[in-house]
């Protein structure tokens, strides 16, 4: 498992849900001490193999993107505690990430 340098948040439109999620992911990464990671947001149409080291997406689009990169699903885009738990679990399970 390679080190995570980039995270991309995806939603079909690429400018609403993905944007809110990317903002909250950035805040959570600060708390996790991973401000080295660059967070971007984009649309489904702009997703491709290796577009990021980790995809953080709404659970609704998980199946659409999981083939492009390691992906974690978020169920509540506003709840930073939930996002924190999901990301922390990922980094705990992938210590090299």
């Amino acid at each position: 498992m390679a080190k995570v340098n980039t995270i991309m948040c995806i939603c079909p439109a690429g400018l609403g849900s993905s944007l809110i999620l990317s903002m909250n992911v950035e805040k959570v990464l600060e708390k996790l001490g991973r401000t080295d990671i660059v967070v971007k947001h984009s649309s489904l149409g702009d997703t491709y193999n290796g577009c990021a080291d980790l995809l953080v997406v709404s659970a609704d689009v998980y199946d659409q993107v999981k083939q492009y990169a390691p992906t974690v699903a978020i169920h509540n885009l506003i709840n930073k505690d939930h996002i924190y738990e999901v990301l922390k679990q990922y980094f705990d399970e992938n210590p090299d990430a």
């Binding site: 939603c11 079909p12 849900s17 489904l44 609704d60 689009v61």
Partner: peptide, 13 residues
Amino acid sequence: FNAYFVLCPGIAL
């Protein structure tokens, strides 16, 4: 894609 714009319980963007 299902209603991916539901941000959290109660609110949709």
